[in-house]
Nucleic acid binder design. Structure first.
Ligand code: FES
Ligand code: FES
Lengths: 161, 161
DNA sequence: TATATTCCTACAATAATGGTAGGATTTAAA
DNA sequence: TTTAAATCCTACCATTATTGTAGGAATATA
């Protein structure tokens, strides 16, 4: 029962992308250093996210990555699923032919329920939700008294694996 | 996101133990062959279940294993947890010191929620539930018309991984 | 005593994870 | 036009986890 570094790195990178909310593409060098993730590894991760249409990649100088949709429309299950691949805790849930007599298997339904439940939890969180948790939640009316020094985000914020 | 063979083998072995409902200890040789699990591997799995008090082991000739409690009182989460170990999808959920700044980490709470949810699903299934799904559900009043020939369970029933 | 069992520990083959390395390609800026 | 900064691609590799196997020691019954 593991969510590998890929899933966690991808989540953190996407969250940072959301928080920066930059109109210009953000280069991975920036995110890699702020999140302390190997650049090369992160490249591969982001490439697959781009392939799935969650981010838009801009090549060439002053290129980088942009969220493909508003942060409120990107949920964790999408991110985790694309980088982790199949989320079924047992392979036969996805492909019944892998197990001998899957038709009569009792536990299979339960593994399936486990998968559905996990994805349900992840689907209930969008990047916007996560941003709100970070304390960047002063959307509607500026009501909360924010610290004067704008929370800079330069040094490794939300570090921690 | 995986439940390894240990968790699945343990579940199937326990289910078979429940279905046999034998007053005499059932030797692993029997279960291993009926479930097509390596005997030596199964030994190790059952030993840890015994250590956790889910089954009772009887050593020596004509020994074997017995459920330590009625099938209705043993849930899947206990089985899976003991053989799989920590079920947290990310290690810092269990031990916060493993992640740098876990105090300010947003995603950590979510990984924790994932773990809780999975365990919740597993906890909602007892061995008795699983037996019922197998069609051995004639508990309360013998109302359902059971096949005359007692369902023998000898050949590999509920095979499939 | 012979036999059938659990218990214990060490080893090993395979697969998955978590990267690194080295470039090729693209594109904006100088 | 050149240079530099970025993504893209693919192959390799080290480490760890998984999934067992092997061989016997301990235990208890018949
Ligand atoms: S059929 Fe795959 S777990 Fe039973
Ligand atoms: S502190 Fe471990 S995931 Fe954030």
């Amino acid at each position: 029962m593991n969510i590998s570094t890929k899933g966690r790195y991808a989540s953190r990178a996407m969250l940072e992308l959301a928080m920066r909310n930059s109109p210009e593409p953000v280069p991975l060098k920036t995110i890699a250093s702020s999140q302390r993730i190997s650049l090369k590894y992160l490249e591969r991760i982001m490439t697959s996210l781009a392939g799935e249409g969650l981010v838009i990649s801009v090549r060439g100088k002053s290129g980088g990555y942009l969220l493909a949709r508003p942060a409120a429309k990107i949920t964790l299950d999408e991110i985790v699923k694309t980088v982790e691949g199949d989320m079924a805790p047992v392979s036969c849930v996805t492909d019944a032919s892998l197990c001998g007599r899957s038709a009569v298997c009792v536990t299979r339904d339960i593994w399936r329920e486990v998968e559905d439940t996990v994805l349900g939890v992840l689907r209930s969180y969008s990047l916007a939700h996560l941003m709100a948790r970070e304390g960047f939640a002063r959307q509607p009316d500026e009501s909360r008294d924010a610290p004067d020094s704008a929370p800079a985000l330069d040094t490794n914020k939300q570090r921690g694996e």
